[in-house]
Amino acid sequence: MTGARGREGALLRVEVAGCVATLTLDNPQKRNALSAALLERLVGALGEIEAKGARVAILRASPGAKVWSAGHDIDELRAGVDMLDEDDPLPRALRALRASPLVVIAQVQGSVWGAGLELALASDLIVADETASVAMTPANLGLPYHAQGLAQFLARLPVNRVKELFFTAQPIDAATALGWGLVNRLVPAGEIDAHVGALARLVAAKAPLALALVKESLRVLVESRPLAPQDAARLAQMRRRALEGADFAEGLAAFREKRSPRFRGG
């Protein structure tokens, strides 16, 4: 199997070997930014590899890539437009990863920013090497983050760690990410391919229906604390104000103009 090709390149390369599939983010010109086309290809690929008998999927960047994913494709963001509605490409891809019966292992090498980190965290296991670093950067753009996404971080981290990630928007290195519990394993770069391959084969040899039940049960348990209606309405109003405010427009303009943003709280 090969990835869909277009003017952006392969976007996603797909290989299946026995019960293990490898999904390779392959858009180096845009540092594997999560465009709608890439995310839609990822969702489709999950169904394709399951139909071909895969039980485990490795999600990785191309060998040697310095950026695992730069997060949202900034060219697709627009001030006043919510890219995190449940029917948009990123939320659909995150749901597909979490709901898939496949065990998904994110092999993280290089830096991971913003929505790229959310994509990695939607995987079941994360194995990183010493080149990895992660950062949650919405505050750099004035992009209002959503409560459902924060809930996924709270399932992995204490609230003070989540605040540090989001308030500072600064990268943390691989060793720190391991200490915080963001990644499962940290291995040398020269050994990560063999390590992840062995882990994938180990998991693929287990009973798939039993693993699928554990994965789905954990997903339901993590997501079983709905917001009270009045809280959901209040948070939605705050997000809408930020999306339509001047700061978000300024953050996008500053990024595109390669300058520091001047946020004024509006």
Rank of each mutant, 00 (worst) to 15 (best):
Q237P: 11
L12R: 02
A177C: 08
S217W: 11
K258C: 05
T137L: 07
A189P: 10
P144K: 02
R185C: 09
I105F: 09
A10C: 13
P63G: 02
K215P: 02
N32S: 01
P138I: 00
V67N: 03
A232K: 03
L125S: 14
T2C: 07
L186T: 15
H195K: 06
P229C: 09
A175D: 12
G245K: 03
L202P: 02
L186D: 13
P158Y: 07
R13N: 14
A61D: 05
A169E: 13
R185D: 15
L12K: 03
L178N: 09
K206W: 15
L143T: 04
F255T: 09
K258Y: 07
R240F: 11
A246F: 13
S133F: 11
L12S: 03
A61T: 02
A194I: 03
G44Y: 06
P261L: 02
T168W: 07
E130I: 05
A33S: 03
S62M: 09
K66S: 14
G114L: 14
P91A: 02
Q170C: 08
P226G: 06
M1P: 08
S224D: 12
A33W: 01
Q148Y: 02
A57I: 02
A253F: 05
P144I: 05
V220E: 13
R5L: 10
D231F: 08
A120H: 07
Q152S: 11
A120C: 12
Q107A: 10
E118M: 08
D124F: 06
T137H: 05
A122D: 07
F166D: 14
V203G: 01
V81Y: 15
A175F: 10
N27C: 01
W68E: 08
G18C: 00
A246N: 13
R13V: 07
N32Y: 00
A135L: 06
V56Y: 01
I105P: 12
L243N: 12
F166T: 10
V196M: 07
L97I: 04
L102V: 11
A93V: 00
R156L: 11
N27Y: 00
P229R: 14
L11I: 01
W180A: 06
A233W: 12
D193M: 06
L39R: 04
T168L: 12
I49E: 03
E257C: 09
V56S: 06
I172G: 08
L25R: 00
V220Y: 08
D231Q: 09
Q107V: 02
L97E: 02
R264N: 15
E250C: 08
H72P: 06
D124I: 09
A207D: 08
Q29E: 15
K258F: 05
A232T: 02
D73C: 07
A21L: 01
A147Q: 03
L23H: 00
P208A: 00
F255N: 09
S123Q: 05
G197R: 06
N184R: 04
V196Y: 05
G80H: 11
D75F: 06
A45F: 05
A194R: 14
A54S: 04
V220N: 11
A115E: 05
A207Q: 11
V187Q: 15
A36G: 01
R262F: 12
E250T: 06
S62F: 02
P226K: 04
T24G: 00
A33M: 01
L117Y: 07
F263P: 13
P229H: 15
R161F: 04
F153Q: 07
